[in-house]
Design a protein around this nucleic acid. Sequence first.
RNA 1: GCCCUCGUAGCUCAGCGGACAGAGCACCGGACUUCUAAUCCGACGGUCGCAGGUUCGAAUCCUGCCGGGGGCACCA
Length: 554
Amino acid sequence: MTPAELSRALTDALTAAAAAGELTVDPADVPAEVRVERPKNRDHGDWATSVALQLAKKAGRPPREVATVLAQRLAQVPGIAAVDIAGPGFLNVTLDAAAAGGLARDVVEAGAAYGRGTAIAGERIDLEFVSANPTGPIHLGGTRWAAVGDSLARVLEAAGAEVTREYYFNDHGAQIDRFARSLLARAHDEPAPEDGYGGDYVSEIAGQVIAKVPGLLEEPREVQQETFRREGVELMFAEIRESLAEFGVHFDVYFHEDSLHASGAVDRALARLRELGNVYEADGATWLRTSAFGDDKDRVVVKSDGQAAYISGDLAYYLDKRERGFDRAIIMLGADHHGYVARMMAMCAAFGDVPGKNLEILIGQMVRLLKDGVPVRMSKRFGNVVTMEDLVEMVGVDAARYSLVRSSADTSIDIDVDLLVRRSNDNPVFYVQYAHARTVNVGVNAAAAGVRREDAFDPSLLVAETESLLLAALAEFPAVVARAAELREPHRVARYLEELAGKYHKFYDACRITPRSDEDVTDVHRTRLWVNDATRQVLANGLQLLGVSAPERM
RNA sequence: GCCCUCGUAGCUCAGCGGACAGAGCACCGGACUUCUAAUCCGACGGUCGCAGGUUCGAAUCCUGCCGGGGGCACCA
């Protein structure tokens, strides 16, 4: 019996009790899905729920009475061994060993599909993340969004959504000009412009442009700058894509800001907003009335010199996403951009859309890299910022991705490089990966000893404490994935895997799967092999959601 | 000044309306002649920043204060 099945049994018990007149509850007050949770305390049964507490007021009865009514009905459900009422009115449910253990087979049979759900089936989501400007390599913050964003995409897909991963390529405007001037200056051995970019990579890119365009330095200065701009951005962008590919993050769409201006999309978006009465002219500029939708002040969309302001690209980009058929556009931004949220939401509302529904903005906090207990600030190539490349070089892709995705995006984190390269329990990536490798190895040994799954599966034999704890953890996986998708918090998957790995290690420690040399193979071994393989499947499925490899040997 | 965000064990972080607040690390003590000890078992460790409020119940929600970080352009 899975938690989902138990939840259904509870809902049925509620409606049945109401129908029989044992409870006077408005059908509207019966939750569609009763939350079933794993109690922290083992003495509180396998699963617990607080529905009785929640419904007591609506039913006009003390919580414990409501609980009693439910408990009587629930106790008759096959697979449920006991239902206890505890404290103020909690229902604590204990399952038969056989009913709990049946899950092992379900998981093995579901395979890679175990954990996937249909909560947001059919929803089309555009997820934009990283979107670092092509004026330099991806820094540590962008690396965090790459890890979290890609994992979130996977989690949303597991919940049934159709997700497009998108990268907004900011190749229009003043900072690209600054980049071009920096390349030009470096090519002529001049000092970098005051507002320009530093770091060795500027020389590298400049050198590559010169190599690619022979005779460039003999051209007029303006021609040179234009060439450096065009080629430099292209090279920088290629480098970013390469870093992302190495990091295991693939985007479906790389969207160029420039194309929005070139295609007239910006003008169309403005015309649309003007029709809706949300655009006006003042002081020689064109303004968007964002203050009417919760922003502090109105925003300039076309400057008085006729140049489009940065936000105009965002307007057109958002409209474009909606016109491409996405129900929902999600954008991940660093905390240093949170000031844009209000105006972006206002912009969304100005189009007549619903902020928070059609447009969602996730703000993530900063990352610091620590080495020998002090923040790392310098990068070899990039000067004063640490890059994705640096991190991967130091700790490898798996450790980098895992450590970035295991914390909630809204806490700032410190990453200890020394810890990440350690191959021990200190390091959560290895802890989880090791558990997976162990399940594989156990499977190999079991096969060699003649323990075969297909010979028997008798879940009533799974009576050890470590077995039932492990089974309960396996049962929770689908709910964890669903919750991670709903809350846009992929870190929940990582935390769950650490817990599961721990339960598995304890199970391994206490329960042999292959018999000792002087023992015969029994149904206990065979049934435990199902549990082992179910664990391997869930660890693999979970690591896949994080974009971290599940090694077979370590 | 205004806005956002965070403040949980010595450290890094979970938990975010439910039952005595958790994990890993660090420190201390145990467990390998048979499935990987990259593991397991035990001990130690916290006025959940502070003060009010809402609730049957608050680390979790609301208000104020204190402290860290970030943001407040006709920059991108």
